[in-house]
Design a protein around this nucleic acid. Structure first.
Lengths: 349, 349
DNA sequence: GTGAAAGCGCTAACAG
DNA sequence: CTGTTAGCGCTTTCAC
């Protein structure tokens, strides 16, 4: 680009208004010691000429750009997980309510480098990190940086939060979520419950699995390893897994607890293909409460982590931190809730 | 915030490396007239000290921030239209492939003001505008500005593109889409086809409606106004509309062309409640090809505008424009395609 | 090849 | 209450 039209500057406004440059600054930032009359006059001229203070110049002298980053770690390839998409929207909405803008970065490969650059070069003031995937080294880098970062359901395995500053964690209580989901199935009479988990190297998946196991133990139901399968959050993978169960000839479980709704849908797909009716022959419960969950047939019973409150909590925590100088690490844990729909049958009655 | 740790500057790097400030700049921007040896030495120091050039300072001296905006006009309240969400992801992905970041702004009310400010204050270089809603005055403002903007399926009703500079339009051919959808129903033997449209003040809705009418006319089927209902893109509204049709006692159409998938889902919901089987008793075709469309039962036959290519075309058009000084307006029209699934029955056989 | 000097547009700290 | 001065950190002439 050679020379797009130059914008008008504060100096020019000052000249037009017949005041000094600093008076214009004073008007813009509404300093109390500028005469109301002057303010009004200058404001009119500012409006008339469409003057807007240059952001780069303000940031350069130490003002805050009011932009945060949202780093979304995603699985490779096209992201077809609408959970993460609605989280994006929620983060943006929450930020905008506080007059902040958000730069959303989708990180599919090991491209954390360009992303942390946004923090380093001062474009953004802080960041929210969400999504899946195994990214120890990038997360470490973020953790060890001085920048304010809020991690949502995602953080390095071995961290000692108390050592850090300006780092926070917002998470849904996945152990509890796994427990409640499993307990719900048990209370509906199920004892042979399969769990299709998320990737075993992700904390959220491990927690849900742990909750599952704990519920079984508490209700004196043996935990069988062959009833635990590792999925990868996609419809396709879940479909393959359950397909294999069906065609193996082994007896099917009476219920499945899927680590997320997409997985649950995959199971449903496999069932559809083989004429297995839900919930009559197989009960299923998911996790996330995607929009999809209420629309498929039968409507999916699922656990809701509260994507809205997750994003909101994260944004609020981040913005609070931006105002302060050094904030010690905080952890905020949100309770999941059960959304009862039609995919689980009570086999006691 | 009082004083978060100051970053290291180019001047300090210069001092450490024992070279001058401008040499450091030369190394960073890889100027050809700097000795390779010097470059390497300085680069090592830069890396060792974690130096990253301050973005605000660079922008201030006229460099490009490499950030674009995505302004998403949405209906009031929670956006539960996953079409727009996946468009967001597509825009971000396309931009990132070109090493641009994107600030996504969701505009629910008449808040275009804060959003155009991002352009005016130089935070972003240009913008992509998508979404629904009636926002003549804001769009006008954008149109009349000097900033590069690409409008995706959304623009002022009365515009004379040729007058403008740095403004482009990317749209899917909605007339054709409406035509193809309707024609498909006709070819499957349907003659009593209802259309649930989008809001009549939105161009895309009008175009789809027009295509619908044209197809009927071309196939010598009378257009009946009572078969055209105005929806608002939501499941809820569509459900109410079709519910009313069912309970009115009037004969139902044999097919429905819904202006988007959400509307189609609303119709399906109403049918479910009343035991009307799809596609046996009612055929239905949607528009958008949401992920949902392939998952619901029966899988929804729909028109795909190609959200991916829409976003990609828009981003490419915008980035090309950013490099140039003044670009005359362009219009890019994308062809919709039919995705055949199971919600339409051929009533001829 | 390298260094010194100017200035992008703004805010802040001073005098007046 | 207003005007003047001094940078923020960078890139870009232009001499050396």
């Amino acid at each position: 680009m050679t020379g797009r039209k130059k914008r008008i500057t504060a100096a020019e406004i000052a000249k037009i208004a017949g005041v000094s440059r600093s008076t214009v600054t004073g008007v813009i930032n509404d300093y109390p010691y500028i005469a109301e009359k002057t303010k009004k006059e200058v404001r009119d001229i500012i409006k008339a000429y469409g003057y807007v203070p240059n952001s780069a110049a303000r940031v350069l002298v130490g003002m805050q750009p009011k932009i945060i980053g949202h780093f979304v770690y995603g699985q490779t390839g096209r992201m077809q997980n609408s959970y993460i998409e609605s989280l994006m929207v929620d983060v943006i909405s929450s930020a905008q309510q506080n007059e902040y803008s958000v730069v959303t970065s989708i990180i599919t490969e090991d491209k954390a480098d360009p992303v942390i650059k946004l923090l380093q070069d001062g474009t953004i003031q802080g960041a929210i990190v969400t999504g899946g995937g195994h990214h120890e080294s990038e997360l470490k880098t973020l953790f060890d940086s001085k920048f304010p970062v809020v991690f949502v359901n995602k953080f390095p395995a071995d961290f000692n939060l108390s050592q850090y500053r300006n780092k926070h964690i917002v998470k849904s209580d996945n152990i509890k979520g796994g427990y409640l989901a499993t307990e719900y199935l048990i209370k509906n009479g199920h004892t042979d419950i399969m769990h299709i988990s998320g990737l075993h190297d992700r904390l959220s998946a491990c927690d849900r699995l742990q909750g599952y196991k704990q519920a079984l133990i508490d209700y004196k139901i043996p935990v069988k390893e062959e009833r635990i399968k590792e999925g990868n959050y996609t419809i396709e993978r879940a479909e393959i897994i359950f397909e294999a169960c069906i065609t193996s000839g082994e007896p099917l479980p009476s219920a499945v607890f899927a680590t997320n709704d997409m997985t649950a849908i995959g199971v449903m797909r496999a069932c559809r293909r083989h004429g297995i009716r839900i919930p009559d022959e197989l009960s299923i419960i998911g996790f996330d409460d995607l929009l999809l969950a209420s629309e498929i047939q039968p409507a999916l019973t699922t656990m809701k982590a509260g994507s809205n409150s997750l994003a909101e909590s994260a944004v609020n925590l981040l913005l609070e931190t931006l105002d302060k100088d050094e904030v010690s690490a905080q952890v905020k844990i949100l309770d999941p809730i059960l959304i009862e729909r039609d995919s689980v049958r009570n086999i006691l009655i």
